[in-house]
Design a protein around this nucleic acid. Structure first.
Lengths: 362, 362
DNA sequence: TTGTACGCGTTATCAT
DNA sequence: ATGATAACGCGTACAA
């Protein structure tokens, strides 16, 4: 069905053809006195071109300000050198860090980053459509995908790496920090230090990460035979921290021994409300901990006890995993590192001012 | 020179041709029993296709999971629907907000965001090369560009909008918040409230924004006949705030009346050091103010007096300006809005506890 | 409205 | 090493 007929000639760009044609490899070839193929080869790293030719080409190219056209190249090579990054929201201060790491790593691989942010989680569908259109060489997704959506990556053979999301039995790669483990560690340390009544300000229901953090905490408490925690739900934002704390106290009838927050932003909100509005001494009367180790968590006013994920390493690995197409369903796990800030009492030395007995007496 | 010969036939994808050819509009046409151009038209919003044909095409398309290839489209239409966003660093908490706004607006325009972050400012050159390759429909740049680089945008006819950078006499668009004005406003208000000895923790030397903020402040102080400020340089990061304050006190021999910080991160660092390490009462003994109105600046522990830029509006306008190719060198200016937090004394009511006389007496 | 034919700018294959 | 030529997949005059 498709036919092509002979094109007789081409005019060089210099001719006054109004709408300023773009400079192509033909123009360069003409000026350099070589074939178009020679130009193409000259721009390909490992190609077989004589230094002489290459020189002529490069001179002509820079004289004409020639730059290869990525669209044409993509069409021909079937690879775009684009990596899609899908992130739910940049409002959560954790993601800019991730994005920063990914951007750096993607650039290092000689690829470009096509960024998609989701105003609503429901927008994933539209976004994926764009991803297919642009024939990206891979995608790194930090957002929730349905089974159908996961399957579509496989079907369309687009390498996918999930970021901190569980590859639910599918053939996709993932980098993920064990959130449940992190939560368990936190509970263990707090319990050792004598905390008994725990509370949690949970993340939003659609966050897999939040789910894991909660279940890790609940399980560990159960194992230790400690009282069931009071769990209130938050939104991963500052206000949720304060509101959450009030709800907890309300529901419990007293200040809990420890509040574990679904992320650091909520921990910070919780701290501020505790100290500035409720007059609760932290960590004397109550311990607070969070997740993510934001930059802000280290500020003197907070110094939050939190769990740090190896973001740089995760980003690097995520990008690297896009390349390995053969191996199946590799899922790399990471450990969070406990940052012992000053918002949680992690030891039970008798002399410690915030020690349980002292508190109880109060 | 270029010739094309006749291609006799094409096999439909279903044939077992090993390397899984991609589904193209030809495949869809074949299945739908129409011409390839009909398929193309069916996917173009305002095209002239009969509902019947459109229906057949769409059915066939979804049966084959067909999605148009953006590279081929770009090649044909000479527009990529890509917008490049170049941002110096995501570490500065101000930029994620900007990026978030831009991402939203770009998506709203039906375009995609190609993100470039600069590890070193020197990388702009490389990044621009990518920008040319991908034939982006426009670029929004929040980074420093040389005159030569600015000119290249004009030469290559790539619409450019600078974000908070001055279009130094060139034919480029820009959205920018008047930083000097904002600084002048701040100084005026602080002076009215009785502050006399000012100090500034400046941003890095290569930041145009920082330059403006500083010069606005210095000029206004001069106009008011107030003492020359002590200016120390910072790095836009948390540590700079504390270090800056120490340097200021060291150089001045005493605590200044007001410290204006080049951005909120430094203001927060300054506050923390003042309160937690130097035991300075803010705003009783010293006022502190910053720029940018970060989310963190509103937290209870800080409540920083700062200047807010209309980021959403600026982002929206920046994206909109990419479209208007005719008008020359439009440069839209915005006003910052003073957020009267509690880190600066902005009134001189006699009864105010932090009032000058009282302070002086102390 | 529909189909034909060609161009978009590159890479890849094949002779030479 | 080099040059001719065929894809790559789509948009679009143009003719019908």
């Amino acid at each position: 069905m498709r036919k092509k007929t002979i094109v007789e000639s081409r005019t060089l760009n210099s001719a006054g053809d109004g709408a300023a044609r773009r400079v192509t490899s033909y123009d360069v070839a003409l000026l350099a006195g070589v074939s178009q193929s020679a130009v193409s080869r000259s721009f390909k790293p490992g190609a077989s071109v004589s230094p002489a030719t290459q020189g002529k080409v490069m001179r002509a190219a820079s004289a004409l300000d020639y730059i290869p056209n990525a669209a044409a190249r993509s069409l021909s090579t079937r690879r775009s050198n684009l990596v899609a990054v899908i992130v739910s929201s940049l409002a959560n201060l954790y993601y800019p860090q991730v994005l920063s790491g990914l951007s750096e790593q993607i650039a290092r691989q000689g690829k470009r980053l096509l960024l998609f942010t989701l105003e609503r989680e429901a927008d994933v569908g539209k976004v994926l459509c764009d991803v297919w259109q642009y024939q990206v060489d891979g995608a790194i997704v930090a957002a929730w995908l349905s089974d159908e959506q996961l399957a579509e990556f496989t079907r369309r053979k687009v390498p996918l790496v999930l970021y901190n999301r569980c590859p639910r039995g599918h053939d996709v790669h993932a980098v993920l920090c064990d959130q449940a483990d992190a939560a368990r560690l936190l509970v263990s340390r707090l319990a050792e230090a004598g905390h008994r009544q725990f509370a949690m300000i949970d993340g939003p229901g659609d966050s897999a990460t939040a789910q894991e953090r909660k279940s890790g905490m609940v399980e560990r408490l159960l194992e230790l035979g400690l009282p069931a925690p009071v769990v209130v739900s938050g939104n991963y934002d500052y206000a949720s921290g304060g509101q959450g704390l009030r709800k907890i106290i309300d529901r419990l009838g007293r200040v809990p021994d420890a509040v574990i927050c679904g992320n650091d932003i909520m921990a910070i909100g919780c701290l501020d409300t505790a100290r500035h509005q409720l007059g609760i001494q932290v960590p004397l009367s109550m311990s607070v901990a969070g997740f993510d180790a934001l930059e802000a968590s280290g500020w003197l006013s907070y110094d939050v006890t939190t769990l740090r994920q190896p973001i740089q390493k995760m980003a690097a690995d995520a990008v690297a995993m896009l390349e390995r197409r053969q191996g199946k369903a590799e899922s790399r796990r990471y450990m969070s590192c406990l940052i012992e800030g000053s918002t949680a009492r992690l030891t039970s030395e008798p002399g410690y001012p915030g020690q349980r007995q002292g508190l109880r007496a109060a």
